[in-house]
Design a protein around this nucleic acid. Structure first.
Length: 347
DNA sequence: AAAAAGATCAACCGCACCCTT
DNA sequence: AAAGGGTGCGGTTGATCTTTT
């Protein structure tokens, strides 16, 4: 036992020399935790909880192993509990789904590991951070993406432009790029949205920074917005469908009204003016889109377009709209079309 | 088989914020 | 209002494990 306290004393002096403020008032052990320490901490917390971490090391020793102090500062106890001993922790490697969630949220929040971890039950911020640094970061780089900005690395930009071009040659693609933030890193989110429910088709909205104005489908309605807006909108009319929605398709039901335009969208588009071009006819269009994702029950989007009126309602989706809303003001989404009859665009 | 390099991850550090006194 | 303690967070370190040479 005396040898034990000698060790404690040495550690304490060392901590003082090293300037460990949080440890300077206690005889603090550092480094890896032993199974005995783990057991002591778990037993203490199971009995007393952890209302005050600073009191844990003191009482964990006193209550369960007389005169053998836990010798850890509260901070260390807290970390050990949160990152390792907590019973609700999920063990094992991250799943593909978890990885995708991390990427998606990181694109929005950056290195806010604690916030990201809150979306992953059973995972800790430390775990997420380590996983990011050891795996995801490298994976993104290998895919030509900057892991911090999620932008394409400069060496990959040319090939991306080619991809975009190919998409626009493909009538079975839906491609939504919000223009709300003109310089947003839209090009980065192809794969990061793969976890979203497949949307019904089929509006293409592009930023002016990627000019892809000609769509190959026919017939086409092309809404070319006024020049002060940083985008244009192309609508595939071939299948009477217009929707940049990311809702679950089954949740969307639209009236088949030949006199209305049904437009469901979560794209964060401000009021804007546009011109509709159809077979040489120009129609002044005024659109107002209100979408609130807070109410997941029923959203109604009103779109008034001069003599064209539209409204659509949809029911709840299991997707995290709050999150999505953050994304959509600056991002880009791509999906293949699979079920073209989910929505209708009727005139 | 052994050494070197790379990968992983638990733990620590310093800072910022919040709350209490 | 200021000081001090507690807590949470992101960045970093270093020990250990794994893979490569």
């Amino acid at each position: 036992m005396s040898q034990n306290f000698d060790t404690i004393g040495r550690v304490f002096e060392q901590n003082l020399k090293m300037g460990h403020r949080c440890c300077s008032k206690q005889k603090i052990k550092r480094g890896l935790w032993s199974p005995e320490e783990d057991e002591r901490l778990v037993r203490y917390i199971n009995t007393h909880g952890h209302k005050s971490w600073s009191s844990v090391p003191k009482y964990a020793g006193k209550h369960f192993l007389l005169h053998v102090w836990l010798q850890r500062c509260g901070k260390s106890c807290r970390l050990r509990w949160i990152n390792y001993l907590r019973p609700d922790l999920k063990r094992g490697s991250f799943t593909a789904e978890e990885e995708q969630i991390i990427i998606d949220i990181h694109r929005i929040l950056g290195n806010r590991w604690a916030q990201i971890a809150k979306h992953l039950p059973g995972r800790t911020d430390n775990e997420v951070k380590n996983f990011w640094n050891s795996c995801i970061k490298k994976k993104l780089i290998s895919q030509g993406l900057d892991p911090q900005t999620h932008n394409l690395l400069s060496s990959h930009k040319r090939s991306f432009a080619s991809t975009i071009s190919n998409m626009h040659q493909n009538s079975n693609s839906i491609c939504i790029i919000s223009s709300h933030v003109p310089n947003a890193p839209m090009e980065t989110t192809f794969q990061t949205f793969s976890s979203l429910p497949k949307p019904p088709p089929s509006v293409v909205q592009t930023s002016s920074s990627i000019v892809t104005s000609e769509y190959q489908t026919s017939p086409i309605i092309s809404n070319k917005f006024s020049s002060d807006l940083p985008y244009e909108l192309l609508i595939d009319h071939a299948s009477n469908i217009c929707s940049p929605s990311f809702m679950n398709p089954p949740a969307v039901e639209l009236p088949n009204n030949v006199n209305s335009v049904n437009w469901i969208s979560r794209v964060n588009v401000d009021d804007f003016s546009a011109q509709t071009l159809e077979e040489g006819t120009q129609v002044e269009v005024q659109q107002e889109m209100n979408t609130t994702c807070e109410d997941k029950g029923t959203d109604v989007i009103e779109a008034s377009k001069g003599n064209l009126e539209s409204s659509a309602s949809f029911e709840s989706s299991n997707f995290d709209f709050g999150l999505l809303d953050c994304v959509l003001s600056s991002e880009f989404i791509s999906h293949d079309l699979s079920c073209m009859d989910e929505l209708a665009w009727n005139f």
